[in-house]
Amino acid sequence: MIELSGVTKSFGSHQVLKGITGSVQRGEVVCLIGPSGSGKSTILRCINGLESYDGGSITVDGAKVDRADRSIVGIRTAMAMVFQRFNLFPHRTALENVVEGPIHVKKEPAAEALARGRDLLARVGLADKFEAYPAQLSGGQMQRVAIARALAMQPKAILFDEPTSALDPELVGEVLGVMKSLAEEGMTMLVVTHEMGFAREVADRVLFLDGGVIVEEGAAREVLSAPRNPRTQDFLRRVLKPI
C-alpha cells in the first residue's frame, strides 16, 4: 500500500535519507526504530507530503506522493497522521477537533460527522470529554483525541510520529492501548517509536534505521530478540538497559 523506493532527502548539506526502500502492506503494522536523528520522522513526513523529498519515489496505492501537486490532498486524507506533540487545535473542543476534517475538508453532513465523532471519542475512552478544550486535558487524553481525529478521516493507514514521546510515563499505557486495539482491528499503521515492548507485541515487522539507511528489517520478534546487525544490537542494548 505504501511503497518507498530509493528515497533520498537532504536538509542543506546534510543528507538525512540515503536511499530508503521499503513497503507497508494493507493491514500491516510496521514500527520504525532507531537512534534520534536517523531519519525516522522524516520518512513519515515525506509519506504524507509534510516534507518534500529529493530523489527516489514514494507511492500510496500506486499514486505518487508529490507535495506540490493537487493530488496530495487525497493522499493526506487517506494517510492520517498522529504527532508527537498532538497538535490539537487549541481553540476547538475535543469533538470539534475530531469533526473538523470530515465536515470542512471532506464535506460530510455535520450530523453524520458529529455522530461518528462522538463514537470515536467514546472508543478512545473520552466519552465524557466531548466539550473539553485541549488545555483542559492531560497529555494522554490529548493524544487520544488526536488519534480519534485521525480515525475520523476514515484513513487507509495511520502514521504515528513518536506518539508517546511527549507523555509522562504513567500516561503512555493508555495511548499504546488504543493503538494496540486499532492494530487488532486490522488498521494499517506505520509507527515511529521508542517503545520496544509495543513494537515486540504489536508490530508485524520492524525496520531499524541508522544514519539515513535501513540497517535491518524483519519480523518484529526476530529483529528485537535476535538482531543480526551490530548497530541494531548496540542500539537495542542501550534502549533496553540504559544504565
Binding site: 504524507n48 507530503g49 509534510l50 490532498v73 487525497g74 493526506r76 486524507t77 492520517a80 497522521m81 504527532f83 506533540r85 497538535n87 490539537l88 487545535f89 473538523e100 476534517g101 470542512h104 475538508v105 471532506k106 481525529r149 478521516m153
Partner: peptide
C-alpha cells in the same frame, strides 16, 4: 505554532481553509 499548520495539512486542508 507550526504544528498547527502541519495538523491542518495532515487532514487535507488547503491554504485558505
Amino acid at each position: 505554532d507550526h504544528g498547527q499548520v502541519e495538523a491542518a495539512e495532515s487532514i487535507g486542508m488547503g491554504w485558505f481553509l
